[in-house]
């Protein structure tokens, strides 16, 4: 059988971390229905301590991580990410985190993203979109909801016209990154963004990952002070 090496990879192994059992059950059955054998749930945890333990034992590809969790030092999802620092999958890739939340409060979202999560989606997301987001994060790409994109535009001053002169600048978005963020905020899928800007999907993914890096590393005061004072609604 001659298949491309990419498809040889087994199912995406994920761990569900959420303190609501009902929500875990719901996601489990939805993902089973939607993705079938492509996604395998290898563990569940209701709080920070149990999550760190399960993740260290199972070494999953992706952790679906609730932003608000009991236990730890009270920082919820961010505590789990910090507690799993350096854990790798069997294939040698880092364990990746996708934050899930009902709250759009900026400080919550920004806290998990800056702790190292690869993306953020709200709990109202459809099963199909969640499946796509999980696969994308497993591949090392970033996942932005329209709301997170809107927040990024605001926080980096891009909505007010601030544009980085060089791409490497951490405190501002480049013109291209701004365009990508605006289209995501408008509800475009990566594929549609690519078509709209006449670039490849891979390039869109690169731009989004670069924005995620800036979001994680930037010391722009808006990201710390601004996020605390104002809510992302």
């Amino acid at each position: 059988m001659s298949t491309q090496p990419k498809q040889v990879r087994g199912p995406v192994r994920i761990v569900l971390v959420d303190d609501h059992r009902m929500f875990r059950t719901g996601v489990r059955s939805e993902l089973a229905e939607e993705a079938g054998a492509a996604i395998e749930i290898v563990g569940e945890a209701p709080d920070v301590e149990a999550a760190v333990k399960v993740i260290r034992e199972t070494r999953p590809d992706v952790v679906l991580l609730d932003v608000h969790l009991p236990g730890g030092t009270g920082k919820g999802g961010a505590d789990v990410i910090n507690g799993c620092y350096g854990v790798e999958t069997e294939a040698g890739a880092p364990v990746r985190f996708l934050a899930l939340s009902v709250s759009d409060a900026a400080e919550d979202v920004i806290a998990v993203i800056r702790a190292g999560a690869r993306g953020y989606v709200t709990k109202t997301i459809t099963a199909r979109d969640l499946g796509t987001a999980v696969r994308r994060v497993a591949d090392g790409d970033a996942v932005f909801s329209p709301r997170l994109a809107g927040f990024v535009l605001d926080a980096f001053g891009a909505a007010a016209g601030e544009i980085a002169e060089v791409d490497e600048e951490l405190d501002r978005l480049s013109a291209r990154e701004r365009e990508v963020m605006r289209l995501i905020a408008r509800g475009y899928q990566y594929k549609e963004v690519a078509k709209e800007l006449f670039i490849s999907v891979k390039t869109v993914e690169t731009h989004v990952s670069s924005v995620l890096r800036k979001l994680q590393l930037s010391s722009r005061h808006e990201l710390t002070a601004w996020a605390m004072g104002r809510r992302l609604v």
Binding site: T126, P146, G150, L153, A159, A160, G161, R182, A185, R186, G187, Y188
Partner: peptide, 19 residues
Amino acid sequence: PPVTAYVEIGPTGVEAYVR
């Protein structure tokens, strides 16, 4: 659905999209 709307209010004016 999903219906998405994006409103950008900036120094160059207002842009709004409904999709």
